[in-house]
Design a protein around this nucleic acid. Structure first.
Lengths: 208, 208
DNA sequence: GTCATCATGTAAGCCGTTACATGATTGC
DNA sequence: GCAATCATGTAACGGCTTACATGATGAC
């Protein structure tokens, strides 16, 4: 999970750990901040595995390239390089290697863990890196799973053993699942180029 | 989390582990089955702590008594005792002790972990055991938390850096949070004896 | 007599957390 | 010069999962 998210973020551009943490929170859906105690070890591990490599700092100045985003990088570099001799406890910027890119594809393609909805959401958030057929399969698998869960929830709600509070919880859960299914249907419709219906458009237009 | 759920279930009546697992799934909202590897150790631990005690077995057959409680225990014992000499690997039925009941109240009252929505849902499902003021506080705290989360999500969605898929994920998440808030508002209204509005009633009437 | 289901448990390990420790940069 | 914030890391631990091992019961 974390690995996949990190790799995905690093696919866009080189970044350092602290920045990744912020992006994890508000670029991808991961509501809560990942803790450092899990982020840094993950980065270290990925580096050991050869999926990432530390690039002393991004953009060794010298604007020889047409680089995008290098400007800020350059400034950062010069700042660090110029820095106090004590240096080295500054940002550590990582770059995705080819091995890492391959790992990313592999992780992204593998089925999300049944539980932990974040595993699924993350894959959708990164869906642009997936071939269209894989996208549809991802969405449809999830849809089937939710359909099953909805049945269970409705069966439970039909039972008579529940008191008001417990029943309300179950009914609200069922409502949430229905809403998820509707969302997936919207995404699937967009995926197939079939606008769901004129007038009532899906909340988001997904196509590039 | 698990402890609280177990204690809650055992508060109603004596049960054995396997049964608890089933109830965890479809009586309380806990969608997915708890694994044995986590359930049985939890039961053992609670027993060691004196929160539970094993009562050889409750009542198989022999409808001699109107018994609630101890009588059935005796009968159960007899079945197990009578059993194949190899016995003893049969069901192990637990009863909630007073210590356990106290522990239950304590756990139920303490604030749910911010993450893991199940922690909150579980408390709502068991809300009948909570004094009304605690119920309202539980719901309002959650409401405030969700309100904050919604702001964050909307801010993220407003950002321009997201591609279609990521944006859709964030927007759907925001929708879910709004739906949760509406649900809480319904529960709070019911809690205060103020029916939300005529015509559009809440999905569930919570009052006894 | 054998298969499915009910029932209890142990062992290893994953994935994350909190708490702690440290250093660098910026603004006042 | 000091505080806030940015930044990286380690240590200990927690809760849950999977996989494994075992036994009892009932149906056919």
């Amino acid at each position: 999970m974390l690995d996949l998210a990190i790799l995905g973020l690093l696919g866009e551009k080189d970044r350092h750990g602290y920045e990744i943490r912020r992006l994890l929170r508000d670029e991808l859906g991961l509501a809560t901040n990942v803790s450092f105690g899990s982020l840094y070890p993950a980065l270290a591990r990925l580096e050991r595995q050869g999926a990432l490599e530390a690039v002393a700092d991004p953009a060794p100045a010298v604007p020889t390239g047409p680089s995008t985003g290098s400007l800020s990088g350059e400034r950062a570099t010069s700042r660090v390089r110029r820095g106090r001799t004590r240096g080295l406890r500054s940002r550590k910027v990582y770059r995705l290697t080819e091995t890492g890119a391959a790992l990313f594809s592999r992780l992204l393609a593998e089925p999300p863990s049944q539980d932990d909805p974040r595993s699924f959401s993350l894959r959708v958030a990164l869906a642009r890196h997936l071939p269209p057929s894989a996208r549809v399969e991802l969405l449809e698998r999830r849809r089937a799973l939710l359909e099953g869960r909805l049945d269970e929830l409705e069966a439970t709600a039909a039972g008579t053993t529940l008191d008001g509070y417990a029943r309300s919880v179950v009914e609200h859960a069922a409502h949430g699942v229905r809403s998820d299914i509707d969302w997936l249907d919207g995404l699937l419709a967009a995926e197939r180029g079939t606008p769901p219906s004129r007038g009532a458009s899906v909340t988001t237009q997904v196509a590039p």
